[in-house]
Design a binder for these strands. Structure first.
Lengths: 358, 358
DNA sequence: CTGAAAGCGCTTACAG
DNA sequence: CTGAAAGCGCTTACAG
């Protein structure tokens, strides 16, 4: 059948295909309306300087033919795709899922599309994705979460478009603008809360990338002349409930005298509670637990979780807006650091230690 | 400064911009290697018929100049963007987050990019997104989840690219291929399990879009001559923990004699457990709870949840592969329904009723 | 095995 | 206020 159609339509290259798919082009609209392509372009783009009568004729032709502009051709001509790339480690964690949706909201407001790449905590995968993105298929790139890209971050010279960093906790590179949380302070808030309740002997559950919040947490204890030793910091094998269970079990086994735990992200906490339960500890009476992130589920735990709330949606919005601004003014790729402030949310999972350690 | 550069480079349109951004084009490579653009194109595309020596010269020029092909120009010439659009209601639910990642995996294997649109259970938003996608910016579209697009589904004639449906539960339209779960059977499995344990008086918590699994659930009771009345079906105000709490509270208040609850998706269950707790019911002794989806968190609940497992990642993979196949063979947009089979996973949240209702 | 031409469907200056 | 030309950077037939 293909051959039949082809023979019937004629031999112009690809003409048969156009005929089959029936693509209406700007030229068709122009002919129908009795004007040039340029005028159609002006009408479509809403540029001034087209007579009312002409515009009406063009618009009529557009709806009659069902014309819809070819965005690829437009991109080639303008050099912009109106598409932004977003790197996140995963969408399975609600922290990043919220970021994705917030970014998408801002992009939609500005008429941009979202190209999503999840890196799955895999630097090599991230690097591959990045290579695939070069070559003008996006106008800019937002990298949210430094868990795996930290050593694969491209040089500004190697990348053809503006890049903005977001939710960055490890060293903040100065070659790109970054919008992130004051993680040192968020850790400090968690630590100061526990100190204020009288806890002296505590454990920290974190992933290695969360150095800043751990540092802040320790600073709160240092303020009172107390030390949180390295042996009290337990790394989570995976960033989820199972990782929380493993790390909390390890922490309780390593030092049964701890009276509180800082779970450096809420996603760990159901596992932490389970580990406490299996160790015969009730929360908060025998063990206080403070989280970080304030995930929506956290208030529904038993007991409701005391945690540090970080404005992740606002952060994502600001980062996206910064990126769009950079894109608009053609690549001023350097910029200052924007730090958003966390807030402690006290609920039921923390209280004074049962028998204050000396 | 712009003006200075412009004056310096000359008056060729946009030449100053190219100079500033320093874009290397295929023509530059060709000149450097002493061949035509066409030969460069052949080398880049890995097409046969280029002499080894020539290819080596071209490749050397490519790396020396740091050439990277302009995908937009390629797309305009080929008519393919190697980008696929994906509609999901949200990425905040792990069910859809898993689908997104599975789709992305398949796309990556085939060298395609992912354009993500979340509809947020908002049909109007979905319609807008769809309109924005037309015009060749994607090669195909995967719509996962029918919660809001059901009445906004485009006519095949109105859409310029292949569409495949996935995770579809309401009426299955015959105008597009669909890869989904046998939801009627999954509901039946949940119902049969409760019946087998001896439950006779039960409630269902579901969203209105989940008619099929509710229907299957009822069929299991009908098999034994029992009826699950409409008054026992409680709709969830929101698709999350809070919705589960509200619906379960309503169900327990409406009929305190129920001995089991079918939560039509696992995301509800923490709220259901909480409602049971507040009603003074222990699970499974005073109330059995069976879920649907088998979210990873579900096995960590107290008690671990009995639920119906659906192969969502496999479903997403198959749907994506079907879409890519359709794209490859230029738009055979009709196709059969692929139904994947669910499986019951029995854990601790279900048991025989404490005092069997007559 | 390699090269000159035409085309993809737009937009961007520029002349009437 | 409208039109003819050139260009965006590729690929696709086709001739040597």
């Amino acid at each position: 059948m293909t051959d039949v159609v082809r023979a019937w339509v004629g031999s112009a290259p690809l003409a048969w295909l156009r005929e089959v798919v029936d693509v209406v082009t700007m030229k068709d609209v122009a002919e129908r309306a009795g004007v040039t392509k340029q005028t159609v372009s002006n009408v479509v783009a809403g540029r001034p300087g087209v007579g009312a009568a002409t515009a009406a004729r063009v618009n009529a032709a557009i709806t009659e033919l069902g014309y819809t502009p070819n965005l690829v051709a437009r991109s080639l001509a303008t050099g912009r795709t109106r598409t932004v790339g977003l790197f996140v480690p995963t969408v399975g964690a609600t922290f990043y899922a919220d970021i994705v949706e917030a970014v998408e909201d801002v992009l939609e407001e500005h008429g941009h599309h979202l190209l999503l790449c999840t890196t799955r905590f895999d630097g090599e995968r991230a690097r591959r994705h990045l290579a695939g993105l070069t070559s003008r298929s996006v106008d800019g790139l937002l990298i949210a979460g430094d868990r795996d890209l930290t050593c694969h971050l491209p040089e500004p010279a190697d990348v053809r478009f503006p890049v903005v960093l977001c939710a960055w906790e490890t060293e903040v590179p100065d070659r790109f603008p970054v919008v992130t949380i004051d993680f040192e302070h968020s850790g400090y808030l968690a630590g100061r809360h526990l100190r204020g309740l009288g806890h002296r002997r505590v454990a920290v559950l974190a992933s290695p990338a969360q150095a800043l919040r751990v540092q802040g947490f320790r600073r709160a204890f240092a303020d009172d002349g107390l030390t949180v030793p390295d042996t009290a910091v337990h790394f989570t094998p995976q960033p989820d409930v199972a990782g929380g269970f493993a790390a909390a079990s390890a922490a309780l086994a390593a030092d049964p005298r701890i009276t509180a735990v800082f779970a450096a992200y809420d996603a760990l906490v159901p596992g932490v509670l389970q580990a406490a339960h299996e160790a015969g500890r009730s929360v908060p009476h025998d063990l206080s637990v403070v989280g970080h992130d304030d995930n929506p589920e956290s208030r529904l735990l038993h007991p409701p979780l005391t945690t540090v709330s970080v404005p992740r949606r606002r952060m994502a919005r600001q980062a996206t807006e910064a990126l769009l601004r950079t894109i608009a003014q053609q690549g001023t790729t350097a910029g200052p650091v924007q730090l958003l402030q966390p807030e402690l949310v006290v609920r039921g999972s923390t209280g004074p230690p049962a028998q204050p350690a000396r």
